[in-house]
Nucleic acid binder design. Sequence first.
DNA 1: AACACCGCCTGAGCGC
DNA 2: TGCGCTCAGGCGGTGT
Length: 286
Amino acid sequence: MPELPEVETLARQLRTALIGRTITRCRLRRRDIVRGPARPRNLLVARRIAGVIRRGKQLAITTEGNGPVLTIQLGMTGQAIVLPPRARPDRMDHIHAEWSLALDDATPAGRLLFRDPRRFGAIATHESHTALLTGPWARLGPDALGISAPSLRPILAASRRPVKARLLDQCAIAGIGNIYADEALFLARLHPLTPCDAIRPPQVRALARAIRAVLNAAIESGGSTLRDYRHADGRSGAFQTRHRVYARAGLPCLCCATTLLSEQIAQRTTVWCPRCQSLPATSAAA
DNA sequence: AACACCGCCTGAGCGC
DNA sequence: TGCGCTCAGGCGGTGT
């Protein structure tokens, strides 16, 4: 399922495929995947693509001259697929939107498809790059890929919630989902129920390092694949073999062989090692 | 205000 | 083989 590393991998692929192309046509098969008051018929049609940017798990396609911006949220099962001219997608079902692309001389340059079986994803348009940055994206926390101990410390100090819940809050830190939250907490040897404001400076540093490490490792291997994620070209990622705790409840810890525990925390299945990730003494005993 | 919790949606995986 | 059940979870909306 797409999290920051998957979206980053996709953004890099889309940059190569889309920048400089002009959108000649948009076909919207499902109106309800457009979030907000966007005009579906005008989703960047006749605009030349200037860039593809990412913030947390969100993706945005910008157009020249600070023109309108299209944001794509992949949700659980969303895919953005670029096809060469005349090529057909592997699957035709659940394709909700389709943009036709052209080169400057009007030569057809393929299509961009948005496919999302579960429809937890969405697209939206914004007036301009500026409007996106000062509006919806201003409400997101700092991007998790660049998180540092000094930037993480006040984010944690401001909350008494379990650290797992805080890591999933996109307004606090943008880009961490369930998989990498568990992986980062394991790497930092922090119990997911640790209250944020009880995390000491050395642990804050360890957590910031762990977040960057798991995200960068996942990007280097092309993103995780558990079930649904595919690259823009349809290939799957290869990170799933590197999960240390996620989806391993009941299996031995790869570090100390203790059986990994699982529980719902912040409405998410959470897996941790009771030995490697102990609660601070001041917190309620496990 | 801050946080908890619901429900959207489909397909994989499982037991029978 | 096939059916029906459970589970997965990002995120906006609502409730406390």
